[in-house]
Write a protein that binds this DNA or RNA. Structure first.
Lengths: 339, 339
DNA sequence: GATGGCATTGAAATCGATTACACAACACCT
DNA sequence: AGGTGTTGTGTAATCGATTTCAATGCCATC
């Protein structure tokens, strides 16, 4: 209840409120609010307000602004693990695009854990976020209902059942086909791979491999694992210890590829002499490891930027039907697949 | 939830406010608030409130909560670029620790740009964040005054003038010394390196190299560049085209090391036969590139976790004097430095 | 000179929560 | 029996902004 007449110095200790700016400028709080926003204010008063803001060192309280205006100017980015270089790159693109339109980004790591996914989705609701960009596990993608959540969702990397939500994905079948055709052209016939078992992505890439092989009357041997370097390395070691190993192996993403290469090294297998190796994600290291690894390069930055663009478009027109943007991967041929 | 009647009735379109919960439970809003928090509420009413929360599908509005309680439960993490694997790993640790104590993280990329740093620091003030973990450029570290900002700051990777702010850093001189001693033990005498020119880290690592060399009566040749793979590759190519190239080169961080390796490859230089190469940051790929790269491994996850811990301690005791936690790097010897 | 826009402005309501304060009910002391 | 806490509860104030609504002054028009 006590008045604070100490306008002596700027930020002694009290935080400056809009009321203080109004007092200093000799106008009403409404006018200050309008001058700071885009309301109709005369040039004269606008100048006064700007001077008062500078003099008092006023910084708006975003919580108050959000509460009253009902605009959080915040989006959520929910991925499995930011340390996956794919998501790292995507996140950078999303944040660039978000900050460019005055939005903040809340980043969440789910570790492919449906419980964490549910928890973070609820958090997003409590934050009253403007929208969410989300790479869900298969389990969550299935039961996801954007209508129920209260904010638009754009899926990345992994898609939901058609028509349910906007999505930006790679043409996984096409990309897998590119890889397989390349391997076949190099003379490899017996082809297999390790695929992630938590997302739809692993399944789609396997399906692409299978389809391409079948077009040539061949079969593919696939194994499904947790999409981590550790699981991939272990599976690779086990596989390489068996009698009949394929001539060429495919990794369903960058982390799996990393683990597979480690496993091959540990087993003393020479690449490509004893085994050809290829995979997804043109991470920095794939160019430099061994003879260079043949990979499918995803337009990572583009995926993030496009996801953000779709989110903004969805906000403009909430009613339009769900869209799926399918981007193409690029085959980068390196030494790991030269017979 | 198989109760269709309730579903259609309840969360049709209106957002549920605490007032609605109070109405549904037949208690006052204060009691609802206390039941959700840790206030004194009888078991009977607490049960009623919980039932009403479940029935109405109430989700608290965090903006309102933050405004009133004056606790944002949010911390800022300001780094140069999340795509730098060092910061990626740190960010994951920070977020794990933050969410574990019920705090959210706002991530900002500054691209080593002092203007962006200033902009994001102001944003943090407007968000009324609880605290900030910050990897500043040298320019900003110099003029940083945590008192003025209004929230505690913990610096990572790079330190400010002593006593100004809490910090978690690597013992750069010790680590650089480890590298140099190792190279000398391998018989290399003419040693040089590429160091980042924006942070104090590059300078400290150079100083460490210089000091170690001087202890053996030797000199070191250093060049300072923008800490990006592109700049490093270009500088490397230029250097390798000159007549007298050192026998061993050191990179001041993982990105620079990546660029240097690319430059060496482009110039057709064999490692370690024609040139030894070593650096900082035990990124995934360093183990797999060429003969394996000798590096200083930083305790990346530990750095992030410690930074968060220091921030929480500082919040408990704002008055205590600034602390600097110095962690040690570990030398990982690989093929790139075997003479 | 009265009337009707139009552009500004301020007072007050409002966003949705937490919390200070008052008060009732009840056990525990002298 | 009469203070004295202690607990649990409701009412109302409050956080700091935006936004509604009414009022003002000014100018052109009739």
């Amino acid at each position: 209840m006590q008045d604070h007449d100490n306008l002596t110095e700027n930020d002694c200790k009290m935080t400056v409120r809009i009321k203080d700016v109004a007092l200093a400028a000799g106008v009403s709080v409404a006018t200050v609010s309008r001058a700071l926003g885009d309301g109709p204010v005369s040039d004269e008063l606008r100048k006064k307000v700007e001077a008062a803001v500078a003099a008092t060192g006023y910084l708006p309280n975003l919580s108050a602004r959000r509460l009253r205006s009902q605009h959080s100017h915040t989006i959520g980015l929910i991925v499995s693990d930011i340390r996956n270089p794919f998501f790292t790159a995507v996140s950078r693109a999303v944040e660039d695009a978000a900050y460019a339109v005055g939005m903040r980004v809340i980043l969440c790591n789910t570790d492919e854990n449906p419980q964490k996914e549910a928890m973070y989705l609820r958090l997003m609701q409590e934050e009253r976020v403007t929208g969410v960009i989300f790479a869900p596990t298969r389990a969550t993608a299935q039961k996801l209902d954007p209508q129920q959540l209260g904010f638009p969702v754009v899926l990345i990397d992994r898609a939901a059942p058609p028509g349910h939500a906007d999505a930006v994905v790679l043409d996984n079948a096409e990309a897998a086909s590119l890889l397989v055709e390349h391997l076949l052209a190099q003379g490899y016939q017996r082809i297999g791979g390790l695929f992630g078992n938590t997302s739809t992505t692993g399944a789609e890439r396997y399906a692409g491999v299978l389809a391409a092989m079948q077009r040539h009357g061949l079969q593919a041997e696939a194994r499904f694992i947790a999409p981590t370097p550790e699981a991939a390395e272990q599976a690779m070691r086990a596989w390489l210890a068996e009698p009949a190993v394929p001539q060429a192996l495919i990794a369903s993403n960058g982390l799996v590829l990393l683990g597979m290469l480690r496993g091959a090294r540990a087993a003393g297998i020479a690449i490509p002499q004893q085994l050809a190796l290829a995979g997804f994600d043109n991470d920095n290291w794939t160019e430099l490891a061994g003879p260079g690894l043949t990979v499918i390069e995803q337009p990572v930055y583009d995926i993030g930027r496009t996801a953000m663009k779709m989110l903004l478009e969805r906000l403009e027109d909430p009613a339009r039907s769900a869209r799926k943007v399918v981007l193409s991967g690029r085959l980068v041929v390196r030494g790991s697949t030269s017979a």
